[in-house]
Amino acid sequence: MHVDIVPVGDVPPAVKREASSGLRAVYDCNVTIHNVQEIPEGSYDSSRGQYRAEEFIELAGRIGDGDKNIAITPKDLFYRRRNYVFGLAYLDGNGSVISTYRLQTSSDGGIASKPASEVFSDRVRKEVVHEIGHTLGLEHCDNNRCVMNFSPTVREVDTKEQNLCGSCSRLVH
């Protein structure tokens, strides 16, 4: 499998590296980094002060060169009635997105004694692995340690692992 990371807006090199290493570690796939893309026109909702996640998925799917493609953006994303999303993907689709905007909260709530930069890197890896998992047909998992567990807060992202549980892993491999 080939996953193309599509940076949308100003994405730091460290974020691209973390995303790439997380994907390679879990899915043993080839990862490429696409050239930087502009924020999709018309994706900003001024009444919310946020961007529509679907527009970033559509962009990644359209311009990405991979079997699966994931947009990474520093912009704050929302989907339908949700206040915000860390990421979004359609089941079995070829495009997905993560936003680093809300993953940068300075602390993990005291779960670990890691520096903030390491906590942020862990979150980036978990979110890209999670969203690509959806594109591979995985739904949310009830195992709260599994990377496919639904985690609407950074604290829940922090408590799960970067890997698929045995059940989810068997569905992919």
Rank of each mutant, 00 (worst) to 15 (best):
Q104D: 13
E38W: 12
P40W: 06
G95H: 01
G64H: 05
A71C: 06
E38H: 10
V36R: 14
E58N: 14
Q50Y: 10
A60N: 06
Y84L: 06
I33R: 00
V36Q: 13
E38Y: 10
D65T: 14
N94P: 05
R82P: 07
F56Q: 03
R62N: 12
F78T: 06
S107H: 09
G66P: 09
R52L: 15
S96T: 05
S99R: 06
G49Q: 08
R81V: 11
G42P: 09
F56I: 05
S107I: 09
R80F: 10
G66K: 07
T100G: 08
G64Q: 04
P74Q: 06
G42V: 01
K75W: 15
P74R: 03
S43F: 05
G49F: 04
A89P: 02
Q104K: 11
R52K: 13
E41W: 15
D92N: 15
R80Q: 13
F86C: 02
L103V: 09
S46V: 11
V36H: 11
E54D: 12
I70Y: 03
F56W: 04
Y44W: 10
A89Y: 01
G93S: 14
I39Y: 08
A71Y: 00
Y84V: 08
I98H: 04
Y44F: 15
I57Q: 07
A89R: 01
T32K: 05
G61K: 01
R82F: 15
Y51V: 07
P40M: 04
I70C: 13
P40G: 02
S46P: 15
L103H: 03
T73K: 01
Q50C: 09
R80K: 13
A71H: 04
V85T: 05
E58F: 06
Y79A: 12
G93A: 10
T100L: 07
D76Y: 12
A53M: 03
Y51S: 06
S43P: 00
E38F: 14
A89D: 02
S107R: 07
T105Q: 12
T32I: 05
A71S: 09
I33H: 00
V97Q: 05
Q50R: 12
I98P: 02
D108N: 08
T100Y: 07
N83T: 09
A60I: 02
I33T: 08
L77E: 02
S47W: 10
R48D: 02
Y101P: 01
G95C: 08
S43W: 02
H34Q: 13
A71G: 08
A53I: 05
N94S: 13
G66Y: 06
R81K: 13
S106M: 09
G87H: 04
V36T: 14
A89T: 02
N83G: 15
D67C: 07
G64Y: 04
V97Y: 02
A71W: 00
D67H: 11
V85G: 01
Y84G: 01
D67N: 12
D108P: 03
A53T: 01
I70E: 03
Q50S: 13
P74G: 05
Y101D: 04
R52V: 12
R82V: 10
E41K: 15
E58A: 08
G95D: 04
Y90V: 15
L103A: 03
R52S: 14
F56N: 01
Y84Q: 10
G87I: 03
G61Y: 14
D108S: 02
I39S: 10
V85I: 08
P74T: 05
S46G: 11
D76I: 03
V36W: 14
